[in-house]
Simulated assay, not measured.
Amino acid sequence: MKSVLITGANRGLGLELTHQYLERGDQVFAATRQPDSATDLRALGQQHEGRLTVLPLDVTSADSLRAAYAQVAAATDHLDILINNAGILPGHPGSGIDDDSSETQKLGQLRYEDAMQVIGTNAVGPLLVTQQFLPLLKAGHKSRVVSLSSGLGSLELKASGSHYHYSASKAAMNMYMRTLAAEAGHFGIISIMVDPGWMRTDMGGTGAALPAADSARGIIRLTDQLHAEENGSFVTWQGKPVAW
Rank of each mutant, 00 (worst) to 15 (best):
E230H: 15
S37C: 04
K142D: 09
L152I: 02
I219R: 08
L180M: 15
A75D: 10
G50H: 05
G12L: 02
G161R: 08
S160Q: 13
Q71G: 07
G185I: 05
N84L: 05
S37H: 06
A70W: 03
Q225T: 11
D77Y: 08
Y69P: 09
E183G: 09
T201N: 07
A115G: 15
D202M: 10
R42F: 04
L15R: 04
A43E: 14
R11W: 00
T18D: 04
T236P: 08
E113M: 11
E183F: 07
R111P: 11
L157Q: 12
D195S: 06
I219L: 13
L65Y: 05
S167Q: 03
Y164H: 15
T60D: 10
E229T: 11
A184Q: 10
A31P: 01
G207R: 12
W198V: 04
A213H: 05
G197N: 01
H48R: 07
G207W: 08
L57P: 03
A243K: 13
D40C: 04
T60C: 09
L210F: 07
I219P: 03
N84A: 09
R111F: 06
A213T: 10
A75L: 10
S3C: 03
E183A: 11
G96R: 00
A67W: 00
H78I: 06
D40F: 05
K170W: 03
P35R: 08
N122P: 01
Q71H: 14
L13P: 00
P35S: 11
P241T: 01
H186I: 06
I81N: 03
I88L: 10
D100H: 11
A171G: 10
L148K: 01
I119N: 08
L148R: 01
Q71W: 03
G87S: 08
D99L: 15
A31I: 00
G120N: 02
I190C: 11
Q27D: 11
M116C: 12
R24K: 15
L110R: 14
D114E: 12
V118L: 04
L5G: 07
V145Q: 01
A213E: 10
K138C: 08
D202F: 03
V59N: 05
R42P: 00
H92M: 14
V145R: 04
K158P: 06
L128A: 08
W244V: 01
N231H: 10
G25L: 05
A181Y: 01
F133C: 13
D40L: 13
P126H: 09
